Simulated scan of single mutants.
Amino acid sequence: MAQERHDDFMTVAEVAAIMRVSKMTVYRLVHSGELPAVRVGRSFRVPAHAVDEYLRQSYMGTA
């Protein structure tokens, strides 16, 4: 049986470093629904593909 691959998840701090913004900015994006995330205990995890897609859309939107 083939094993299904799950998305890699990143912490808010990792997302902030990649996007070069503050952690608070990432939290705002998560709470507004602009950046999907799952809650794990008291913290959030953001799917890597969601960060890639958000950055792609942001980049394309400014062109």
Rank of each mutant, 00 (worst) to 15 (best):
S43L: 09
T25M: 03
S43E: 05
G33Y: 06
H31R: 13
R45G: 01
G41H: 07
M60V: 09
Y27N: 05
R42A: 07
V51S: 08
V12F: 11
A63M: 12
P47N: 07
H6D: 00
H31C: 02
S32H: 05
L35S: 12
V46L: 08
V38W: 00
V12D: 03
V46S: 03
F44R: 11
T25L: 11
Y59K: 08
M24I: 15
E53D: 12
I18M: 08
A2Y: 13
S43K: 10
H31K: 04
V26A: 08
Y59A: 08
V26M: 04
G33N: 05
S22R: 13
Y27T: 10
D8I: 15
G33V: 06
Y54L: 14
V21Q: 01
V40Y: 11
S43G: 01
H6F: 04
H49K: 14
Q3I: 15
V15W: 01
A13L: 11
T25E: 07
M10K: 05
L29R: 08
R45H: 00
V26H: 04
R42S: 06
Y59I: 14
E14Y: 03
A13H: 10
S32I: 10
S58H: 09
R28Q: 04
I18R: 10
R56Q: 06
V21T: 15
Y54Q: 05
Q3A: 10
M10E: 05
M60F: 04
Y59N: 06
E34Y: 09
F9L: 13
S43V: 12
V12C: 05
M10R: 03
V38C: 02
M19E: 02
R45W: 02
Q57Y: 02
T11Y: 05
E53Q: 06
V38Y: 11
Y59G: 05
R39K: 13
M10H: 03
P47D: 08
H6W: 09
E34L: 12
H6G: 02
Q3S: 11
V30H: 04
E4L: 15
T62Q: 09
R45Y: 01
P36R: 10
Y27A: 01
G41V: 14
S32L: 06
A13I: 07
R39A: 02
S22Q: 07
F9K: 02
A2K: 13
A2T: 15
A2V: 14
R5W: 14
V30T: 11
G33D: 03
M10S: 01
A63S: 06
L35K: 13
D8V: 15
V30F: 03
H49C: 10
T25S: 14
S32A: 09
Q57F: 02
P36V: 13
V21P: 00
M1H: 12
I18V: 09
R5Q: 12
I18F: 00
V40D: 02
A50K: 09
V51E: 07
D8M: 14
Y59P: 00
L55D: 02
M1D: 12
S43F: 07
I18W: 02
D8G: 05
M24E: 09
L29N: 07
V51N: 03
T11L: 03
R20W: 04
V26I: 10
G33A: 05
A16M: 01
S32W: 03
S32T: 13
E34F: 09
F9T: 01
R20D: 01
P47V: 15
R45S: 08
